[in-house]
Write a protein that binds this DNA or RNA. Structure first.
Lengths: 224, 224
DNA sequence: TCCTTTTGGTACCGATTTGACACCGTGCGG
DNA sequence: CCGCACGGTGTCAAATCGGTACCAAAAGGA
């Protein structure tokens, strides 16, 4: 279970890191607000710990922006007696807050509680190489950050291929999983067309060989 | 989400009433301690705000009696420096206290925090970006302050979309959740019409792109 | 009741997506 | 050398999809 920690205080960050790691979480660290948003998009954590005071973008702004795209649990870290900040944070959709200083024990308890409340709304981002696919958003993101618009069938094909990365999928398997039913089995024409259109969108870099490898006489596989 | 406010000070009560209503809560008012107990039994609120000084039964006594029958969150309202009262209130099972005078923002934050601790769903008001939705009133409030009235179906659609912010909801999912059951599944016509009407009301700023993003071939998602 | 609001439904337009054809080059076996 | 199977490409028509306008039925309030 991944947790994104956004805090510019190196020392505090280390404490958080240690406590969370010891509790069995994977920690991803951001040192400022911009980086936090970036890492969120990349890593799709299950929970976010946000410090209020941060360079570039402060915690409130990060919170606001995260809330426009995700309902991930957000816990704010704040200094004592900052009522005003806390109120704003709740208004912007934060789930909880912890005042510094706090005990690691308390932190873990809050984190677990927030995760429990959020149910199992874990994001299932699929990453292969520098291609990331978000099923719940129907979106594909490249390492650089560019997104590609895919049609429903293109998306399903890519999804299937990425779920089975490295493995060769026979044409029949692919046809069945993409189109869903028997009628088209045995017909390679449709798959040919679809693979072509998908390659045009996905193979951004014309130098490198296609991400979708053809295995002659069998089918296709994604990446090597 | 209902909140019982027990306070004999008419002016203060109005402030409380307004602040809570604006935050999306339903307010039930009691003018004295007896009435508070009575209304509690009748309306079963999710939280109780209790003034210390009240006719018939004072706040402490009401608190004590409520605790014999319910674990509802209780927040006491007290004048400044009434240490003794505060200690007694906690002993009798109060969850939090607020000293008068207080800001509406602070009040809301405390109320939400108490509700959250109690395990109830945080707030009935749903905020995404600068759009806030009030379930009970079938109304949305924008950052600027303008409100828009929604019809029941429009409201349900927006509610579902906001609850799943950032995620793409398929047309079938939406149809099922808005209309309730199968009869209409597979029919996009109704949804088209509803989305259009909702957009007309919600997309106040004609410059910006619609808050309701259409994901071609799949469905819609709510973004700010 | 009458009038207003809300909802269901039809028709049409333009854009996108998809299915389907014919054709091309390559590699292989006879 | 020829024919053939296979995968890739160009192209295009048909189907689908989303948006809009408009209207009629249904529901709700005064």
């Amino acid at each position: 279970m991944k947790i994104l920690v956004a805090d510019d205080d190196r020392e505090l960050g280390e404490i958080l890191n240690l406590a969370l790691t010891r509790a069995g979480f994977d920690v991803v660290r951001a040192m400022d607000g911009e980086q936090a948003l970036e890492l969120f998009a990349q890593t799709q954590p299950s929970l976010v710990l946000l410090d209020f005071a941060m360079p570039k973008l402060d915690g409130l702004e990060v919170c606001r922006q995260l809330r426009t795209q995700s309902s991930v649990p957000i816990i704010m870290l704040t200094v004592h007696n900052a009522e005003e900040e806390i109120v704003r944070a709740f208004e912007l959709g934060a789930d909880d807050y912890i005042t510094k200083p706090f005990s690691p024990k308390q932190l873990i308890a809050r984190v677990k509680a927030a995760l429990r409340r959020s149910g199992a709304s874990v994001s299932s981002a699929l990453t292969v190489g520098d291609v990331r696919l978000f099923p719940e958003r129907h979106e594909v993101l490249f390492g650089g950050g560019e997104t590609v618009r895919l049609t429903p069938l293109e998306f399903r094909l890519l999804h299937v291929l990425m779920l089975n990365r490295g493995q060769v999928m026979s044409t029949d398997q692919l046809v069945e999983q993409v189109w869903g039913h028997e009628e088209h089995i045995g017909d390679r024409t449709l798959l040919k067309g679809l693979v072509r259109r998908l390659r045009q969108k996905v193979d951004v870099d014309p130098d490198r060989s296609s991400l979708i490898k053809t295995v002659a006489g069998v089918g296709y596989s994604f990446m090597a």
